[in-house]
Write a protein that binds this DNA or RNA. Structure first.
Length: 335
DNA sequence: AAGACGAAAGTGGTTGA
DNA sequence: TCAACAACTTTCGTCTT
């Protein structure tokens, strides 16, 4: 009897999903018209959506129109028809960002079986008990509750920074691994969650500085750094140090600099790298100096103060980096 | 007066004994 | 565990435009 009840519930779920899917399909077909946007700088319509960095970039001049875009796409790829069919799905995909990976069952509240017939009063009582326990089981013990809390916190911060889904997944996975290894003992959940987010950013090559993350986190920058190093060591995640180039486009657009400056800055960093001027130095400082130099060379000068504020280093650091670079490059920089 | 420059002292983190 | 160390910051006085 219990078994048949379960089967029936699954059927109810299945039928509901089918209807839902059909509706979604209809909706999608309705809003097929494309939205055409053009670049305010050069008028080009060739815009690239860089979901990894959450940026909308003009292909011709490199202007960043929007750095808060949301990735609407599917998270799987299909290369031919068979794969597409094989990978199409009913219901949401399994995800690490929900504490039970989004795989738990919710028993529907409708007292009908899969054929739409009413369920007898005797069975109704049983169905009620089943639902009650299903709910109770879903968020069970303390660890589950903590995980649910940490993941919601993770999602809140990721939303505040408009990070794409792959970063969220990577962060959630890092957090789960930290939990499995009992690394949260003696550390705050928020601290570990934030560190996991930072690790996720590093892993996915999405440049966010510790300062930017600390701005939306509920823990101090110091603690994030400490916790991050700890879990990175314990989980043996070793990422390459972030290249200064990764920051350039974001900072340039924040300073309203043109694509020419951006290109020049990237070139400057590249040359500085070849002369071993970047190793051991903070990547943000190098990026700041390169942008500062490029802005002068291209005749769109920004003050050291302006650059320093956007990048999050002091003027002194910019001066030091830029002196080193200028010395190596010779008179080129001196106007 | 604003911006650039540089000296000096302090901070937080890494490294090596 | 501690001291040495490099990178970076803060603060402040001076110079240049």
């Amino acid at each position: 009897m219990k078994e048949t009840e379960k089967v029936r519930d699954v059927e109810v779920d299945g039928a509901k999903e089918r209807i839902k899917k059909k509706r979604e399909k209809e909706k999608k077909e309705e809003r097929l018209e494309e939205i055409v946007v053009e670049c305010p700088l050069c008028g080009s319509r060739k815009l690239i959506q860089d979901y990894k960095r959450a940026e909308l970039v003009c292909e011709d001049c490199g202007f960043v129109l929007d750095d808060n875009i949301i990735d609407p796409g599917p998270e799987w790829r299909a290369f031919d028809h068979d794969q597409r069919m094989g990978r199409s799905r009913t219901g949401p995909p399994a995800t690490y960002t929900i504490h039970d990976k989004g795989l738990s069952t919710m028993i529907d509240w409708i007292d009908k079986d899969s054929y739409g017939k009413a369920i007898s009063s005797q069975d109704k009582a049983q169905l009620y008990r089943l639902r009650k326990w299903q709910r109770r089981i879903r968020v069970n013990d303390a660890t589950e509750r903590n995980l649910a809390f940490a993941l919601s916190e993770l999602d809140r911060m990721a939303s505040a920074l408009s990070l794409p889904r792959d970063v969220r997944e990577a962060s959630a996975l890092a957090y789960r691994r930290a939990v499995e290894k009992n690394l949260i003992r003696g550390r705050s959940i928020e601290g570990v969650a934030t560190a996991a987010l930072y690790a996720g950013c590093r892993e996915c090559g999405v440049p966010r500085t510790l300062n930017e993350i600390a701005a939306v986190a509920r823990v101090s920058r110091k603690e994030i750094g400490r916790t991050y190093r700890f879990i990175a060591r314990e989980l043996s995640l070793n990422f390459m140090p972030i290249s200064p180039t990764a920051y350039v486009s974001r900072f340039c657009s924040a300073l309203k600099l043109s694509g020419a400056v951006e290109t020049k800055a990237l070139e400057t960093i590249q040359r500085a790298k070849e002369k071993e001027l970047t190793s051991g130095k903070g990547p943000t400082g190098v990026a700041a100096a390169a942008i500062y130099i490029a802005s002068i060379v291209c005749g769109e000068k920004r003050t050291q103060r302006e650059v320093a504020d956007v990048v999050g280093v002091t003027e002194v650091t910019i001066r030091n980096r830029y002196k080193e670079i200028a010395k190596e490059f010779g008179i080129e920089i001196i106007l």
